[in-house]
Design a protein around this nucleic acid. Sequence first.
DNA 1: CGAACCCTTGACAGAAATCAACTAAGGTGG
DNA 2: CCACCTTAGTTGATTTCTGTCAAGGGTTCG
Lengths: 254, 254
Amino acid sequence: MRDEDKPEIRKLPLFRDMSAENFETLMQAAYAHTFPAQLEMIRQGEPADFLHIMMEGTVELFSGWRGRETTMAVVRPVSTFILAACIKDAPYLMSARTVEKSRIIMIPAKDLRATFRLDPEFAMSTITELANCYRSVVRHAKGLKLRTSRERVAAYICRQSRLAGNAASFILPIEKRLLASYLGMTPENFSRAIKALQSDGVAIDGMRIIITDPKALEAIAGPDSLMDGPDGNSEFPGADFPEVPWDAKQREAM
Amino acid sequence: MRDEDKPEIRKLPLFRDMSAENFETLMQAAYAHTFPAQLEMIRQGEPADFLHIMMEGTVELFSGWRGRETTMAVVRPVSTFILAACIKDAPYLMSARTVEKSRIIMIPAKDLRATFRLDPEFAMSTITELANCYRSVVRHAKGLKLRTSRERVAAYICRQSRLAGNAASFILPIEKRLLASYLGMTPENFSRAIKALQSDGVAIDGMRIIITDPKALEAIAGPDSLMDGPDGNSEFPGADFPEVPWDAKQREAM
DNA sequence: CGAACCCTTGACAGAAATCAACTAAGGTGG
DNA sequence: CCACCTTAGTTGATTTCTGTCAAGGGTTCG
């Protein structure tokens, strides 16, 4: 791996507080790898050998069952994924594939487990990280059970707008079909849901979303800090179930 | 709290490995409380002050939004719940109410947090516990997104049967309306789903489920260790999202 | 004994998936 | 450079699934 990656990784909440020595040891055990687009690098059911750190690109976490498939999360830099499986030394519950060419750093699960036995600060960070991951999935599950698909789309738009600093307009950070699957619906249904929201303060132009009437949108979305995350979005540190973050690409597009 | 509770608590994976001294300290900070049935003892959105340990009874974890409500988990003894909120010192994402009269031990979140800073073994147990919780919710979410309601019911019956030692017959451990809500459907839909399964090897008599044709049932349920948990159900330690365990009540009823 | 409450069933309405067709954009290879 | 192919997205028609509303039977509990 490149030396210039280290500061980036070190900034992550998971690695921020551990000792410099242990961090170095962990990094020396790490591999870096660049994957082309559309490559399935993790298959659900296989043993979890590596903690993955996204450095560049986009990765989709998804699950399949009987020919059906659903997107569980979309991961963007800089963040980690599949921490829990590594800890448990258990099979991955999700598969992962690159959406675009991605550079990923892989830390052997064995070294990871050894390290938080060694470093209390790292153990603490891991606890916090896992608690965040857990709460993110609970939120996701709540959304699936308590909101209709139209409401989930509305809520997603609210969240993204807020992540963009309450912007009235933003660019969808990922393909609509991925988003649809993440939100638990078909692409067709997603398409129709957005169209239906046009009478509730949302306009769409290609990948650009424009909120024409925030009040009306919120009336549908009913944003709720217990489902959508608190204002500061501090609950979404980019862990296993991150919201897609506001990034440079979007800023350019505004 | 009663002294005779301590050995039970000590058996929990979360408390098994910590030092005797720290365990005692933690227990001395704990309160025990018996709640009557149908009492909402935790309201979502409120600050998480206590880790709860179920000693006797049944508790429902549920969430509400805009007048809708959904059951997120049903907790039975002996297990803990709302660990993640305590760790994060954040608002509860779920409410909790007793289904029946329940005895619950409450450990102040502050003491909890202090303890895993103090005791590396406890920190390790917490990490494992959280990873289990996380994977449980991921499984739950996968079920919601990948299976139809009929398939979820079938899969639930398969799981319960397996928990009962591959029994061909068992008693539903909780009310059907709770189960329906947990499985993400209305009571009416649940009722119809079970009825529809009668042509696929499932018979029902009141609260008793009889599997008349395991092969046919599995053909619908498509049991999958990545969604339903591995054979040994070791992944369901009775944490935040436990499967309802096989207990004495059921044994009597067989 | 009455009042809740749970469960079931039926009829209906609404939501969502499926199937199919079509457009538009992007990439490939001639 | 263009024809071709692939794929994402949209739209419409249709079916399937699920929720809602209403009613009735059964049970529990006060």
